[in-house]
Structure formats: structure tokens, C-alpha cells
Simulated assay, not measured.
Amino acid sequence: MRALTKTLVSVTTAIGIATGGLATAGTAMAAPATTAQERVVTAEVGTLAVVNLGLSSAQAKDVQRWLKTYHGYTGAIDGALGTNSWKAFQRCLKQYWGYTGAIDGIVGGGTVSALQRLLRDTGHYSGAIDGIAGPGTKAGFKAWANQF
């Protein structure tokens, strides 16, 4: 009985592998559609990203109010620094602190470097302008946000 069971499992496995091999040949043509679909999902996730860089919700709301008053922020005052908040911040950073990147709301090295220049110039940061949002940058950002 065991020998029969082993044989059936082996044959079933071999058939499954063969079928899987044939099935994957057909899906190779569909791979570009999956890739395009993944790009859309990634883009949607990117627009939902919240990067408060250590700020509390209350501090982030204060920053959003400041952005609304001075830099064209039109989003909700919700305490979540998302894409629209960072686009407004990037406009500010471009105007005054040497940000040269796209106004895309993505908090990358260029955005962080310009933020570090703002923080240094306002006396809230003394570290390197390295584009890394480390503890010193986050502490400086919190101190800067507390002035509102």
C-alpha cells in the first residue's frame, strides 16, 4: 500500500511540475501587465506616504498651518505630513534654502539637505548637511516646529 501511495504522489508531482511548466510559458506573455499594475500600486502608495520626521501630530498641524499661510499648502490640517505638505515645504525650501529637486512631495536626500540648511540657518541644527534625517535632524525639526 505504501509503495502504491509513493508512486501516486510521485506521478502527481511529476504531472504538476509538467503542468506548471506549461502554465508558466503562457504567463510569460502577461508579465508586462503585472509590472504596469505594480507601478500603479507603487504610485498610489507613494502619494499616501506620511513622513513626520519625528514630529507629533500637534507639531505637524502647526507646520501645516505655517505652510498654508506662507507656501500654498491647500490640504487638510490633519497632523500627517504627506505628499501635499511636503510639496509645499519643497516650494519653501526651493525659494530660500537651495532645494533643487522636483516639487514631488517625496522626502529624499535633497529635501532633507535643504531642510538641514533651514534648520542650521535658524539655529536648530548644527550637524552635517548630508541629506540623512538622523536624530540630530529630527531633533532640530522638532525644535523648529515648536516655535509655531
Rank of each mutant, 00 (worst) to 15 (best):
T35C: 05
Y125S: 00
I17Q: 01
Q116F: 04
S10R: 13
W97Q: 12
R120C: 05
I77R: 04
Q64Y: 03
P135E: 15
K68Y: 10
R65P: 04
L4G: 10
A58R: 06
G79H: 01
S10E: 07
Y99S: 04
G134Y: 05
A30Y: 15
K6P: 00
E38L: 14
I129Q: 03
L93W: 07
K142D: 12
S57T: 11
R91K: 12
A28C: 11
G26P: 04
G109M: 07
G79Y: 04
I132F: 04
A3R: 13
C92N: 08
V45I: 13
V41F: 15
A145P: 04
I132T: 07
G72Y: 02
A133T: 06
L55F: 10
T34N: 13
S56R: 05
E38N: 15
T122P: 03
L8W: 02
T5E: 11
A58P: 05
G127M: 04
N84L: 10
A43R: 07
G127H: 00
A23N: 04
N84P: 01
A114G: 09
N52Y: 08
A43H: 09
W86M: 02
Y73P: 00
I15H: 05
Y96C: 06
S126C: 00
V11T: 05
L119F: 10
A128Y: 07
K94N: 09
Q64D: 06
G134D: 07
A60M: 03
A58G: 12
K142N: 12
G136L: 14
Y96P: 00
A114L: 06
R65W: 12
T69H: 08
G101K: 10
L67C: 06
A80H: 13
A43N: 11
Q95C: 03
A88I: 00
A76P: 03
Q116K: 02
K142F: 06
A23F: 11
I129V: 03
A3V: 11
A102Y: 13
N52W: 12
A139C: 06
V41R: 15
G46Q: 10
P32T: 13
A102I: 05
A33D: 12
V50E: 08
E38R: 15
V40N: 14
W97A: 11
L55Y: 12
A145W: 12
L118Q: 14
G16D: 02
D104S: 07
N84S: 08
Y70P: 02
W86D: 05
H124F: 08
G101S: 11
C92K: 09
T122V: 09
R2W: 15
I15E: 06
H124I: 01
I129R: 00
L22E: 07
G54W: 07
D130V: 02
A49D: 12
V107F: 08
Q95A: 08
S10T: 09
P135F: 14
Q147F: 08
Y70L: 01
T74S: 09
W86I: 02
A80D: 12
K87D: 02
G127K: 00
Q90A: 03
A143Q: 13
